[in-house]
Design a protein around this nucleic acid. Structure first.
Lengths: 208, 208
DNA sequence: TAGATTGTTAATCGATTAACAATC
DNA sequence: TAGATTGTTAATCGATTAACAATC
C-alpha cells in the first residue's frame, strides 16, 4: 500500500467505482476483468494492473465480487468516511456544487458558503447559509473543514486562495481558471478548469 | 498539420492559451520556452515539442511572440470562430454553464435551454429561454447548433443522449456521471465527470 | 560577431499491453 | 479434473526529456 501509485491510475479509480456502482444496481454480483474491460473500453490487463496496486481482490477462475471490489475501491478513494466542505463563492458554480446530488450521496457535506456580495450574504443555498468573507477565519477555527471549494471569479482566485491557506485549509477543489499549486505549503489542490474542457471539445470539432 | 496529435498534447493546449492570455494582460510581449516552462511547471522541451505539432511559431535566439502564439493556439483550438450551444437540463449545472463568463467571452453562445420540468419551461436563464424537451427536434432543425451541453441527472443521461443523436447533434459536452461514447455514430463527446474530480481529491487527502 | 533559443533528432523514462504460471 | 481467470513478470509502445545543430 505504501508503494507508488501513478497519477494515471488515480484518475481511473473513480471510473471503476462508478461502473461498479452501476453493475451493483443492475444486480450483477460478479465480473471478470475481461467483461469489465469491455464495458469500460479498457484492456483487461490494465484493469488487473490498476486493481493490484491496492491488493489482490480477485479470485482465479472466477473474477471479482462486484460489491467487494466496489467497497475496496471506495475505501481507497476515501469514500467510506464523511468529508466536510465549505464553498467560497456563492455564484452559479458554487450553487451548482451545493446542489449536486452525487456529492451529498457520497458523504461530502457542505457546512457553509462564503461570498463578498451583500445581496447574497444571509441567504441560503440548498438549505446552507451564505456567510460574509469576514466570517471565514473564525468559521475555520470553529469547524473541522476537510475541503474548500474555490468558486470565485478568476481575478479574485489567487487572493482568496492565499486567505484560505492562511486560515489553515489543506485541500482545495478549484473551479477558477487559474493554475493553483501549493504542495510546498502542504495544500492539496485539484483544478477543474471547465473552460479547458470545453476548449478540448472545440479542438476536436475543428479537427474532425 | 495532418499529422497525429496525441490526447496528452490536446489536453495541454488550453493551459497554454490561458497562460498566454495572462501574459498578454501583464503586458509581456515575448517569452522563451524556458520562462514559460517555469511559469507552467513544465519542461522547456515539452513546450517546444507541443507547439511544434502545429508549426514553428518561435524565433531562434528570441523566443515566442506572446500575442502571435496566443492567436495561433487560439486558432488551433477553434476559438477564432463562434460556437453555438444548447443546454439540455436547466438545473443548477445547466444554469452555471449558461452564466459562465469565460464561455461567453470566448464565443460560446447559448441559444436555448431545454428541460422537462414544467416549472422551468418558459422561464429564462441569463436571458436565454428554457424550452420543453418536445421542442428540441424542431429547434435543432431550425438552428445550427455546434454543441449540446448535457446537464441532466445520470439516470436520464443515456436516453437524452440518444435523443440528441437522433436529432443530428454532433458534439456533446457531458456533465452527467456516465461514460458516453459515440465515435461510431460520428459524435464527439467530452465527459466532464465532476464527481470523479472530487474523488481524486478525496484520494489525495486519504493518502497524504 | 557572440549569445540565446529554437526546431528536431536521439535517449530515457513510464505506462500500457501481452504472456503465462499459479490457482480457484 | 478441466476451464477460466487472476496476479505478476516481461515486452512493447508512447510520451517526456535531453542534446545539439541551425539560426536569429
Amino acid at each position: 500500500m505504501a508503494n507508488y501509485v501513478s497519477e494515471a491510475v488515480i484518475r481511473r479509480l473513480p471510473g471503476y467505482y462508478r461502473h461498479l456502482r452501476e453493475l451493483e444496481a443492475e444486480g450483477v454480483t460478479q465480473i471478470s476483468s475481461k467483461d469489465l474491460g469491455e464495458r469500460m473500453r479498457q484492456t483487461p490487463s490494465q484493469i488487473r494492473q490498476d486493481i493490484n496496486c491496492f491488493g489482490g481482490f480477485g479470485r482465479q477462475g472466477y473474477g471479482y465480487s462486484v460489491s467487494e471490489l466496489k467497497q475496496e475501491i471506495g475505501h481507497v478513494l476515501g469514500l467510506d468516511r464523511e468529508h466536510t466542505m465549505i464553498i467560497v463563492g456563492a455564484g452559479s458554480i458554487g450553487s451548482a456544487v451545493a446542489h449536486y446530488p452525487t456529492f451529498i450521496r457520497e458523504g461530502f457535506r457542505t457546512l457553509a458558503l462564503f461570498d463578498t456580495d451583500p445581496a447574497r450574504i444571509g441567504t441560503s443555498v440548498n438549505g446552507v447559509r451564505v456567510h460574509s468573507m469576514e466570517e471565514l477565519p473564525l468559521f475555520l477555527e470553529e469547524h473541522a473543514v476537510d475541503i474548500a471549494v474555490l468558486a470565485v471569479p478568476g481575478d479574485a482566485a489567487r487572493e482568496v486562495f492565499d486567505e484560505l491557506a492562511r486560515c489553515g485549509v489543506t485541500a482545495v477543489w478549484n473551479f477558477a481558471p487559474v493554475d493553483l499549486h501549493a504542495e510546498e505549503r502542504g495544500i492539496t489542490v485539484v483544478n477543474v478548469h471547465l473552460a479547458d474542457s470545453l476548449q478540448t471539445l472545440s479542438y476536436k470539432i475543428a479537427h474532425r
